[in-house]
């Protein structure tokens, strides 16, 4: 017993002796590997595993099917990984589009004078005044659902907060001396924006992308779960979970548990990466 304890203690020791930064770096590596595995799995696993296989219906978790199978005999692990990969794709596209909108509006608000600034701040308020999910449903409804509706909806609903951040950042930079000098030298707005402002805002954009992504992917899952997002023929976590609802009372718990848990892990992973990037950029938090 005591020798066991010693062993456990011994094996934990190296991890504990790392300091905060090393530990957070390790977490980052592990999390990135996890995400890589998910995406690779989603891309590489063959579609045969999610073809209807009535001989293997409703199986609980096993070595051959770690996440079990559904009522059509499809492998739930493959469905989950493919669903997650699709979600990551949709989420990243939408988040990237949102970041682009935020960049353009934030820079415009900070550099084009008071009128433009107040119009953009009004727009930000406008998009914050309708509940996110309701706005998503509205846009999805307008575009007739499907991937297009989801991506556009997500892109159009996630930019406001980042726009404020970028506006504030650019405002601060604009009064910086070297930008003033550049202005006096008669450089064009485009030149100043590209040469002086953008390089400073770029890291913020990167952080913004990673922090917007979890919201985007969760909203994608939600709108798909509701039935107004991705189509039932696409492998999507929202679809899988919505289907699982129908089998709740049959005690096929694996249909809901594993896909949901996987989604949670993926979202949290992106969150961790985003937080890490932010603390690296923000000197106030650098010593945490």
């Amino acid at each position: 017993m005591s020798s066991m304890m010693k062993m456990v203690k011994f094996s934990i020791q190296p991890f504990i002796s790392l300091n905060g930064r090393q530990r957070s770096f390790m977490t980052l590596v592990i999390v990135s590997l996890l995400l890589l595995c998910v995406i690779l799995g989603g891309l590489v696993l063959s579609n045969e595993r999610i073809a209807t296989d009535l001989g293997n219906r409703n199986l609980g978790p096993s070595l051959a099917h770690p996440f079990g199978t559904d009522w059509l005999g499809r492998d739930m692990l493959t469905r989950t990984l493919k669903g997650l990969t699709l979600s990551i794709g949709v989420g990243l596209t939408a988040a990237a589009a949102s970041v682009t909108i935020a960049l353009i509006l934030g820079m415009l608000a900070a550099t084009m004078g008071k009128v433009v600034d107040s119009i953009i701040s009004w727009l930000v308020d406008l998009f914050l005044s309708v509940p996110h999910l309701v706005m998503l449903m509205l846009i999805s409804f307008a575009l007739g659902g499907g991937i297009k509706g989801v991506v556009i909806g997500l892109a159009l609903t996630h930019w406001p907060s980042l726009t404020r951040v970028i506006r504030a950042e650019v405002m601060q930079l604009r009064s910086a001396e070297y930008v003033e000098v550049s202005k006096r030298l008669g450089k064009s707005r485009w030149f100043i924006g590209r040469k002086h402002l953008f390089p400073h805002v770029a890291p913020q954009l990167m952080v913004g992308l990673f922090l917007l992504f979890p919201h985007a992917i969760l909203h994608e899952a939600a709108i798909t779960f509701i039935g107004m997002g991705l189509s039932p023929h696409q492998p999507a976590i929202g679809i899988i979970l919505s289907e699982s609802m129908r089998y709740l009372s049959t005690e096929m718990w694996w249909l809901a548990i594993f896909p949901g848990l996987s989604l949670l892990l993926v979202v949290r992973s992106f969150d961790i990466i985003g937080e890490h990037l932010r603390s690296r950029l923000d000197p106030h938090r650098a010593h945490d």
């Binding site: 979890p214 969760l218 979970l241 718990w253 969150d271």
Partner: peptide, 19 residues
């Protein structure tokens, strides 16, 4: 919790307390 879809929590609670 911040990384968890609300509806999945609902499903979990249903699985545990109702089913």
């Amino acid at each position: 919790l911040a990384s968890t879809p609300a509806f999945w929590i609902g499903i979990l609670l249903l699985l545990i307390f109702a089913v």
